[in-house]
């Protein structure tokens, strides 16, 4: 039984359909990455999965008692709120100092960072603290929404290496939205290409064997644009059936 499963999920926002008939499931121990152009409904899909949005159609089924560790796309801490790292790690549940230190060292932060204010952290440190908090919840499912936004390439690579280690250590499922396509290829078990509906899915190899993706190799950072162009260019047919093995159409 998958940790979390969305069946025939449709969500609209402000009267505009954002997601149409999306199917998705994450098993324990696998890393699933959602890619797609801006406005393709990636964040909406995550919000529907964590229960922050009610779907118009379809449903989300979770394993009973599923613990979700969520790392949001961005977290704005109001300047009026004092929030030291150590306190943030204990939201909403208390954790003892030893497990906090362990979680901090897992994400590569020194224990003394706990005394610093969240607003004083660098971008990389901030994202690591968000991840440490998610780990402390001992999640069955780790949900990362563009968690490396604003990080440079080495920082991004280091961040996803940590995610991989956490998956090993906790044997949790990982569902992430990412713009970093090299990470999609190296660290994911499955890739889902979203553009309002699931237009392409499968193992990274399946996706990589698509001509559009081949064109992507060797173009460096322009490859990102190439994949998005593929997602934009073709005419979507809502009623088409998906090849169970996946693939890009």
């Amino acid at each position: 039984m998958p940790l979390i499963e969305a069946k025939d999920l449709s969500v609209s926002r402000g009267g505009r359909p954002v997601l149409r008939h999306v199917d998705l499931a994450v098993e324990r121990g696998e890393i699933v990455t959602i890619v797609g152009p801006n406005g393709s409904g990636k964040s909406t899909l995550l919000q529907a999965l964590i229960g922050a949005l009610k779907p118009d159609e379809g449903r989300v089924t979770r394993v009973p008692g599923l613990r979700i560790g969520y790392v949001p796309q961005s977290l704005h801490i109001d300047a009026t709120m004092p929030m030291p790292v150590g306190r943030f790690l204990r939201l909403p549940h208390a954790h003892d100092a030893l497990s906090r230190t362990r979680a901090m060292s897992t994400v590569g932060l020194e224990p003394d960072v706990e005394a610093q204010q969240m607003t004083a952290l660098s971008g990389g440190q901030f994202q690591r603290v968000l991840l440490a908090r998610a780990i402390l919840m001992e999640p069955d499912l780790l949900v990362l929404d563009e968690a490396t936004r604003g990080l440079d390439q080495p920082g991004t690579a280091a961040f996803y290496k940590i995610v991989e280690e956490v998956r090993q250590a906790l044997d949790c499922g990982v569902l992430m939205v990412s713009h970093d396509l090299h990470v999609v290829m190296s660290a994911s078990d499955r890739v889902i290409c979203l553009n309002g509906h699931v237009c392409c899915h499968g193992t990274p190899e399946t996706v990589a064997s698509a001509p559009e993706y081949r064109a992507l190799f060797g173009f460096g950072t322009q490859g990102t644009l190439a994949l998005y162009r593929h997602a934009h260019d073709h005419v979507h047919d809502d009623d088409h059936s998906h090849d169970p093995r996946g693939g890009c159409e």
Partner: peptide, 19 residues
């Protein structure tokens, strides 16, 4: 207290924690 603080910080973060 704890739920109020978490929800004040970020609604989605609270929702994912079951608040």
């Amino acid at each position: 207290w704890s739920g109020l603080l978490t929800a004040t910080l970020n609604a989605d973060l609270a929702q994912a924690s079951g608040i």
